[in-house]
Amino acid sequence: MTHDQERLTTRSSDVLSISRHSEGKDFMKGVLFLALALSAVQGISPLHAETPTGTLVGRILYVGPAIPDQVFEVTRDSGFCGAQATIRTVTIHPKTRGLEGAVVSIDGVAVPLSDPAAPALVLTNTRCAFTPRLATGVVGQQVEIRNDDPVMHNTHISMGSRTLVNVAMIPASRPVWKPLKQSGIYTVKCDAHKFMQAHILAFTHPFFSITDETGAFRIPSLPPGEHQVTIWHDTLGTVHQSVTIAATGDTHVTLEYPNHADARKQ
């Protein structure tokens, strides 16, 4: 991790702590473990309504230089897909400078999923693009793959060198379902149309959010204390930051993506 990644800009109203390995963190882990053990004995959810929880509310900013869109020549089905395909890489809100489509998550909180039977994530091949281009879900959640186009697609979802599913989707195909098997970043592509790409991020906890068009996000029901925030964007890469969640109410943060080439490579 580069120095720039460690040095996310914080604003005056923030309650961020740069210290990652403080004794207080270890103490909070112990407290959390004890709480989980007690709750297991009593047969109640660790984040029961009576347990104090806080909400992380914030905005992700990007104030670096503009990153050009990617333009691809369409070599197949150009009659329907068009002669060129343009992929917007970084979308910034003109007023807030907020970054749309970043995934904010808080890992390391040992809380089981309260709703394992979440509805399927619907991933549709439509107009030679994946809709949505970015999705988040939990391990075990089903992905429903659809094709609304009059051309054949080949939806190929993988994590690293392991395939999650690779299915031919001819026009008017029946949907295909596949559960997310492990946490991490899944790459979605169409082997028939190289310009089609999307990502699915899978988690083993419910503490994640996608920034909206203004760069805003909100993660509720967090145990108070210090947590590690991970921010991921498909073009700008991954950065981490510590944050301290208040025992009650909202904790407001504004995080700025580092303007550093090394960060974008990740």
Partner: peptide, 10 residues
């Protein structure tokens, strides 16, 4: 798996 050859099971 690990190649562009998809499944046609569906």
């Amino acid at each position: 798996d690990g190649t562009p050859m998809p499944s046609y099971a569906n």
